[in-house]
């Protein structure tokens, strides 16, 4: 009797091992990616830029090859850190912490799970000092598209006043706004660029009130970054002005208002991270998307943009790529300027 029981148990164990082992093998075939984002994946801004890119990569490689999980609205760092640890413990291959604020917590979690690849941005620090080898960093040279938008905005403005609805004067937003201002001033030195910071990323009402204020003060072209801008775009739409955007395409719904959006396309970065991981490199590199690769100036096809404006934009894009124009905040500013031989 006992022997039969033992035999039965052994058989059961064998079956279980086959089933579970097979399951594990199957799971390992799939690349598992988790995204942790501070706002909603449909925020028309920062979070959506990464969510869209991940979905595009998943569609390209196949849903049977890539599993994608998104945890959104984790603006609070402790919540995000808990999610990171959770995903790493669940055996996810790549955990993307899509926010500058996540850095310190992410480094701690990355040290605990050396087999998991972590990526974060906006950042250029991949944890070398901390001795981490499983962290990638990524950032966008937002000042480049900001500069291009500034050139176009200056050309389109009739009042000579441009308005910026900014979240905070730091990070990605600062790069974009400083670039925008520089591009506008380079095009029309006497143009007035008015900037309001709401000191928040998600204050829709305050962003709307900021747009109203800027319009009252004569602005006929607005721009802004962060997920709080849809109310501001609606406001400049009602005033029959123009809007320039950044991070994610914002033209849908505002086809008569949005001129051009600097779109953060992270697909190249994600693909490279996947390729590096498959080749055995789990981290240790910083990526930057720029107009050369990854940043796309998406013109609104439904709006008739004057040829001169479009041409000025194209020329500016080429000049930035060639290094002839260096927007403020660009790392190229630190390099010795390429002076022609004399």
């Amino acid at each position: 009797m006992n022997k039969r029981w033992i035999a039965f148990l052994m058989a059961a164990a064998l079956v279980a091992a086959l089933v579970l082992g097979g399951g594990a093998a199957q799971a390992q075939d799939k690349l598992r990616i988790a995204l942790i984002s501070p706002s909603a994946q449909n925020d028309l801004a920062w979070s959506q830029s990464m969510a869209d890119a991940l979905k595009a990569v998943q569609a390209e490689l196949g849903a049977d090859k890539v599993e994608l999980t998104i945890s959104e609205n984790l603006f609070r760092v402790p919540d995000a850190a808990a999610a990171m640890r959770d995903y790493a413990a669940q055996g996810y291959d790549i955990v993307i912490a899509h926010g500058t604020q996540y850095g310190a917590s992410m480094f701690e979690v990355a040290a605990e799970f050396p087999e998991v690849t972590f990526a974060w941005g906006t950042a250029s620090d991949y944890g070398e000092e901390e001795g981490l080898t499983n962290v990638f960093a990524y950032e966008a040279r937002a000042e480049e598209g900001g500069y291009v938008n500034g050139v176009m905005a200056a050309l389109l403005s009739k009042s000579g006043v441009l308005g910026v609805v900014g979240p905070v004067n730091a990070g990605d937003a600062k790069l974009y706004i400083d670039g925008f201002t520089a591009g506008a001033k380079a095009t029309k030195p006497d143009i007035d660029v008015k900037v309001i910071f709401t000191e928040s990323f998600g204050d829709t009402a305050k962003a709307t009130e900021s747009a109203k204020t800027l319009i009252s003060q004569g602005a006929d072209v607005l721009t802004g970054s962060a997920q709080q801008v849809p109310g501001a775009i609606t406001e400049i739409q009602a005033a029959k002005g123009f809007w320039f955007g950044t991070q994610t395409d914002q033209a849908a719904g505002w086809e008569d208002t949005v001129v051009c959006v600097q779109v953060f396309d992270w697909t190249g970065v994600i693909k490279e991270i996947i390729a590096l991981r498959e080749a055995g490199t789990l981290g240790g590199k910083a990526f930057a998307i720029s107009l050369e690769s990854g940043l796309t100036m998406k013109f609104n096809e439904k709006l008739s943009i004057p040829d001169a404006v479009k041409q000025a934009a194209e020329e500016t894009i080429n000049a930035i790529i060639a290094g002839e124009i260096i927007p403020p905040g660009s790392p190229r500013e630190l390099e010795p300027a390429a002076t022609p031989d004399n």
């Binding site: 609205n73 204050d203 829709t204 009402a205 305050k206 709307t208 997920q227 709080q228 109310g231 609606t234």
Partner: peptide
């Protein structure tokens, strides 16, 4: 009044603590 008059938009958590 926030979504129909002031902003003419809805976004999640748009009250932002009002």
């Amino acid at each position: 009044s926030l979504s129909l008059a002031q902003t003419k938009i809805f976004q999640e958590n748009m009250t932002n603590g009002i």
